[in-house]
Amino acid sequence: MQPVRLTPDDDMQAIHRLLSTAFAYMEDRIDPPSSLRRMTPSTFAEEARRKELWALLDPAPVACMVLTPRPGHLYLGKLAVAEGQRGRGIARLMLAHADARARALGLPALVLQTRVELTENHAAFTRLGFAETARTAHAGYDRPTSVTFTRTVAQPEPAP
């Protein structure tokens, strides 16, 4: 299985459902609440139009991520793997695809953010080759609320 790039015409209800279910565990743990609360299937159609929305389908989405090219890096947002699919290397597969997209776009790094409270995410991203590079606060907060992680994108060896 390989991730496929979704278009605004694809089933965004299924993407919204995957993300809502996958992110539900953090509801009572993070402050401020996740931006996912404000997102709808229409929001994801717009994400597919303006950014790159990728999903792994089997045949329904079992994983997804949003990739956004930014100066100097590819930002990876809303990475989710369905609960019943975890532990099978799907996150690694999605990240390998994000690496390939970054290389294709000439970007040297992947960057993502997770919430300060989600220490299990910090450990998982560290195991996946990311390093903490910053802590930031959401508007109105006087303490860090997010942790930024960065991973260098492996560049192909030059041809002899």
Rank of each mutant, 00 (worst) to 15 (best):
M1Y: 11
Q2A: 04
Q2M: 07
V4M: 07
V4D: 02
T7H: 01
T7R: 04
P8H: 01
D9K: 02
D11R: 04
Q13S: 03
A14M: 03
R17L: 06
S20L: 09
A22L: 05
F23C: 01
Y25D: 14
Y25Q: 11
Y25G: 08
Y25C: 08
M26L: 15
E27Y: 01
E27M: 07
D28M: 04
R29C: 09
R29I: 11
D31L: 06
D31S: 14
P33M: 13
S34Q: 01
S35C: 09
S35N: 10
L36H: 07
L36M: 09
R37S: 08
R38P: 00
P41I: 11
S42I: 01
T43I: 09
T43H: 14
A45V: 03
A45G: 15
E46Y: 04
A48E: 06
A48F: 02
R49W: 01
R49D: 11
R50H: 07
R50Y: 03
E52A: 15
E52H: 12
L53E: 05
L53Q: 04
A55G: 10
D58T: 04
P59D: 07
A60V: 05
P61G: 10
V62P: 11
V62I: 15
V66Y: 08
P69F: 09
P69N: 07
R70P: 00
P71H: 11
P71V: 10
P71D: 14
L74S: 07
Y75Q: 09
Y75K: 09
L76K: 03
G77S: 15
E83I: 11
G84K: 02
G84C: 02
Q85V: 14
Q85K: 12
Q85D: 14
G87I: 01
G89S: 06
I90G: 13
A91V: 06
A91C: 10
A91T: 11
M94N: 03
H97Q: 09
H97M: 03
H97E: 12
A98I: 02
A100Y: 07
R101E: 13
R103N: 08
R103G: 10
A104N: 00
L105V: 01
L107A: 03
V111M: 03
L112Y: 08
Q113M: 08
T114C: 12
V116Q: 12
T119W: 11
T119Y: 08
E120G: 00
E120I: 05
N121C: 06
H122P: 05
H122Q: 13
A123W: 07
A124S: 08
F125W: 14
F125M: 08
T126A: 15
R127V: 03
L128W: 06
L128G: 10
G129Y: 02
F130A: 04
E132L: 09
T133E: 11
T133K: 08
A134W: 10
A134G: 10
R135S: 07
T136N: 09
A137W: 13
A139Q: 11
G140M: 06
Y141M: 13
D142N: 14
T145V: 11
F149D: 00
T150W: 01
T152M: 12
V153H: 04
V153Y: 02
A154F: 05
A154S: 13
A154C: 07
Q155Y: 06
P158N: 08
P158W: 11
P158V: 10
P158K: 10
A159Q: 12
P160I: 13
